[in-house]
């Protein structure tokens, strides 16, 4: 397995948010991390990326234990994060946003521009002047520029127009076809399930169910994902 998370616990100060999450992502696999709001999806991702100070358990990435490592080291090991809410560098241009993240590998500004032609047309534009969809493309492009072995997308298409969502899912499918390992969180099940190889469902801070998308029955969806 490329990523193996076991009994992951994390807290915000005195308030514990994760009580033992388990998940795994294999090479070239797309795993959907699911669960209702507040069940710990973003916290799990932040903990994997080292962005939660209070965390315990075991996180093995490419055979290396990374639970105690700093965020920049975890990123250098090959985990690329597209955070919730885009979070680009607003006062840098598109080119500078991509350049700042660049690490050796197949992903360059030119290949990112091929994946997202709209970004290619706006390389000298400030990130703050982009639309929400373009900012999400930039956030994905920036994560790809680190040439990650595992790409993590938190709320991949949240708040985006349907046409932009279609572009983002199309890009994710292309990445999957290229063999990119992906851990993805998103609420649009109709798009998420066809692209996922496996699903991990979180319930109150721990892993409640794991299985293939076709095993996620209506009853399970109602139990774990229904409002």
């Amino acid at each position: 397995m490329l990523l193996e998370v076991r009994n992951l616990q994390a807290s915000y100060g005195a308030s514990q948010a994760l009580f033992g999450a388990d998940l795994a992502v294999g090479e070239g696999e797309v795993v959907a991390l699911m669960g209702r709001n507040g069940m710990g999806k973003t916290t799990t991702i932040r903990a994997i990326c080292g962005l939660m100070a209070n965390r315990s358990g075991a996180i093995s990435f490419a055979g290396r234990e990374v639970i105690r490592e700093k965020p920049f080291r975890i990123a250098r090991h090959g985990i690329g994060l597209v955070p919730e809410g885009r979070r680009c560098f607003p006062n840098l241009t598109v080119r500078e946003n991509l350049l700042a993240a660049a690490r050796p590998g197949k992903w360059t500004i030119a290949t990112v521009a091929q994946l997202f032609p709209r970004l290619g047309e706006r390389l000298s534009q400030y990130a703050r002047t982009l639309s929400g969809g373009e900012q999400q493309m930039l956030a994905i492009g920036r994560a790809l520029m680190t040439n990650p072995r595992l790409l993590i997308l938190d709320e991949a298409t949240e708040g985006l127009a349907p046409t932009v969502r279609r572009d983002i899912w199309s890009a994710i499918r292309r990445l999957k076809a290229d063999g990119q390992s992906i851990l993805v969180v998103d609420k649009t099940m109709v798009e998420l399930l066809p692209v996922a190889d496996r699903c991990v469902v979180l319930e109150k801070g721990h892993t409640a169910w794991t299985g293939r998308p076709d095993e996620l029955t209506a009853e399970l969806q109602d139990r774990y994902l229904g409002v």
């Binding site: 250098r76 840098l92 920036r142 994560a143």
Partner: peptide, 14 residues
């Protein structure tokens, strides 16, 4: 320049 804008965000890109 990115580090000036957000330290945690630059850490997340290595």
């Amino acid at each position: 320049h990115a580090a000036r804008q957000n330290e945690l965000r630059v850490a997340a890109i290595g």
